[in-house]
């Protein structure tokens, strides 16, 4: 099985709003994919299509080699899903809820369940209805991973965690990739977390895929140039096509450039300037990612 999921020409409209607009996407396995985008860019809608909960107006969605709307029990027991809005059954205790959901899957791993309860510091005697948002999220994550899923889909899973628990969860996700060779799709706004674990980045904007690249490639694609002129004169505006953002102040300038298309030597010669190249992290390049066209 080459791809965990494949999407071709997926378009979804709600009344007059086009939520997803011709999405094409393929994710191989194993891998951790970060699904990024601003609010309302279509992340959750895309995820619900992958899970077969929503049906496309156009195009096809294939999850674990089945059309996602026709996913059967046999495939679904290999998928873990943490929805954005977690509700669960209020009246059960955490322990009861774990026992209940464990019956859905043939390969439930009690050892992993206990390990995660301890690592995430979740009290299993508590009633689900009394859990805080963070603890509810922990339970939802545990419910989604103890059956050794091949595909794990997490819709904003870490938003309510404290930094320590968040760190442990991220570490566990890496372990999931190592041990189960799972493919993980994680949508998030917390770019620092995503940056730590993902190897592939997909960015949505207004229902379109605007970035679909490996994180390493992205980091090498963009960089920041700090420029000091040697002869005292810099243009008011740099017109090189690879300059994406600029800030010029007297003899100094700060440019954000598309490194892959830039020519340092030519630039240095043209402007008689010293250039120091600084890398950009994911948070810094995010505005570039969601603004840019795939072309």
């Amino acid at each position: 099985m080459a791809y965990a999921f494949e999407i071709h020409g997926l378009t979804k409209r709600f009344d007059t709003v086009t939520a997803l607009d011709g999405i094409d996407l393929r994710v191989g396995r194993p891998s951790i994919v970060g699904l990024l985008g601003r609010n309302g860019s279509g992340k959750t809608t895309l995820i619900q299509h992958l899970m077969g909960l929503q049906l496309p107006n156009e195009g096809t969605v294939t999850t674990l080699a089945r059309p996602s709307h026709a996913l059967r029990h046999d495939e679904l027991i290999h998928i873990g899903y943490v929805p954005q809005e977690i509700r669960l059954l209020d009246w059960m205790t955490v322990e009861q809820h774990l026992r209940y959901v464990s019956c859905f899957y043939p390969a439930w791993d009690t050892g992993r369940e206990q390990k995660l309860l301890a690592a995430l510091e979740l009290d299993s005697t508590k009633t689900v209805g009394t859990l805080s948002a963070g603890n509810l999220q922990k339970l939802a994550v545990i419910l989604a991973v103890c059956h050794h899923p091949d595909l794990l889909v997490l819709d904003e899973p870490v938003s309510d965690f404290d930094p320590i628990v968040r760190g442990r969860l991220l570490e566990f996700l890496l372990e999931l990739v190592r041990e189960d060779e799972a493919t993980i799709l994680v949508s998030s706004h917390v770019l620092r977390d995503v940056e730590r674990i993902v190897d592939w980045v997909v960015c949505l904007d207004k229902g379109r895929v605007v970035t679909d690249a490996s994180l390493d490639e992205l980091k090498e694609r963009y960089s920041e140039w700090r420029i000091v002129s040697t002869d005292g004169a810099l243009p008011a505006r740099f017109s090189e096509p690879y300059v994406l953002a600029q800030e010029v102040s007297g003899r100094q300038a700060r440019l954000v450039v598309r490194q892959s298309a830039a020519d340092v030597a030519a630039f240095r010669a043209a402007h008689a300037a010293e250039i120091t190249v600084h890398p950009l992290n994911l948070e810094e390049m995010f505005p570039l990612l969601v603004r840019e066209d795939p072309s």
Partner: peptide
């Protein structure tokens, strides 16, 4: 790869690369 991925907390794919 596995041990380094665990100790550094980074994706195993990155280490193999």
């Amino acid at each position: 790869t596995r041990a380094l991925s665990a100790s550094l907390g980074v994706n195993p794919m990155t280490i193999s690369k």
